[in-house]
Design a protein around this nucleic acid. Sequence first.
DNA 1: CAGGCGACTTCCGTCCGATGGAAGAGAACT
DNA 2: AGTTCTCTTCCATCGGACGGAAGTCGCCTG
Lengths: 274, 274
Amino acid sequence: MTTTGHTANDDHMVRRTALGRALAVLDAFGPQHRLLSLSEIARRADLTLPTTHRLVSELVTWGALERHPSGHYFLGLRLLELAALAPRGLQLREAAFPFLDDLHQATHSNVHLGVRDGHEVVYVDTMRSRVSAQISSRVGDRWPLHVSGTGLVLLAYAEPAFQDEVLQAPLVRYTPKTVVDPHELRRILADIRRTGVVIAHEQITLQAVAVAAPVRGPRNDVIAAISAVVSLNETPLNQLAARLTDTANAISHALGAPSPRREPQGRRRLTAVA
Amino acid sequence: MTTTGHTANDDHMVRRTALGRALAVLDAFGPQHRLLSLSEIARRADLTLPTTHRLVSELVTWGALERHPSGHYFLGLRLLELAALAPRGLQLREAAFPFLDDLHQATHSNVHLGVRDGHEVVYVDTMRSRVSAQISSRVGDRWPLHVSGTGLVLLAYAEPAFQDEVLQAPLVRYTPKTVVDPHELRRILADIRRTGVVIAHEQITLQAVAVAAPVRGPRNDVIAAISAVVSLNETPLNQLAARLTDTANAISHALGAPSPRREPQGRRRLTAVA
DNA sequence: CAGGCGACTTCCGTCCGATGGAAGAGAACT
DNA sequence: AGTTCTCTTCCATCGGACGGAAGTCGCCTG
């Protein structure tokens, strides 16, 4: 998990400010570092002890941090409250949940809801399957856009300039099947725009297939993507793709998107990757 | 020590510090204020424009805030990432989700996962029912401990000193059926500790019944509570109570709690409120 | 049990970054 | 063109942040 590149340890220049130091304190926490002592925080945030002490105390008072009986600190509930108010965070999840839950129940797949952040997709909600592909995605996980089903969809509907930027950067490979050729990716993105859905084979994990579709907001722009990940050869993928599209449209509708224009009728050829 | 539930806005203490001001900026956002202009933030946080501008810019760079095309600001994805790392936040949700999802599917009820924070319960996860009681609970919502099913459970297992503190404070009434009498509440809390479950009738909403049970952590202390809320006279409540207990135990087990000692055998008398 | 060590907390004088008045740039409305 | 918003930038002053130092506490070791 934690995925790969967390956009790099941005040891930003903005650490000479009081706020910058406080944010560095929060950054000290991570998937492998959920419980930190004061000195560990100081070390990881590159701050002196007294400064760390002062900042941490204030963060505890406010609720961004909490204190374990052992004296160690961990991230606090106040952050959850704020995340719940984030339009692209839990607020989005709230709106999408009923539909994703239906999808999850009906398909027994791993369901993801992702939004774009920088050159990555961030999962805003995940529902794990206990019968299908055993992949481990968690809320907050990040993946490069070109490997994740949701990422590909988000990339497909991003501005061309942004697509260029992404496709010109080095493209990480996760499996032998991962598509990293810019030209092939462009073809895939075009197909996604044409069909409104993608079927991505073993791009991140062997034996796993992701099916993903775009979610649109009130202005009809793609604001998120959903995906279902199943084991290879487990489910009729066309059926799954149709269901993904339906679910995505339902969510879009709930978010206030205009009704989708009828898809080009007739047999839709689906976008398949690898 | 943040300890004692300072429920209310204690802006007062720490607003002269740079960090305090930054936190005030975040506090400016709320359920009714998800999208704010710079000057609105300044007004709501009681800061000057230049100061707000500086802080907001830094928060945007870091990802705590994002900027809408319109120029307005909203809470950013970085907060979701942090919330995902909060042991009592989304990390807890991740662990509990499969079990809560089963419960949700099986009972078609409104399912809540709550933890205690100060004098309130905070919902860490919620799953809304579309067939049962139409109540609207969202992640991050807070309720006084004495009215929510989860809150009663959490209160029941809190330290006596804390219970006294809560019961001595004014107890808000939400419906005519809300129990606000300290003595009756003490009886209820004792019953919860005896039976391990509570059935709370119409304490927050008329026509709604909450059934709740405790979730235990590795040290066997109660760290959370789950509840299912259904419409009055809709479900056999004893069955539901048994299911809640099972689900709660399963989650506790998944969290590493010691196996529960056998409940006092024989017919369990369930705790009923009102 | 003294002594040493690490983690945490508090204090306080120096100094550097935060502050907000002021002014300028847009944008929208009259 | 004038008025009134909002947002942005600049910069001299001032006050809060900083961190060295010393004090506590708990724990391990000889």
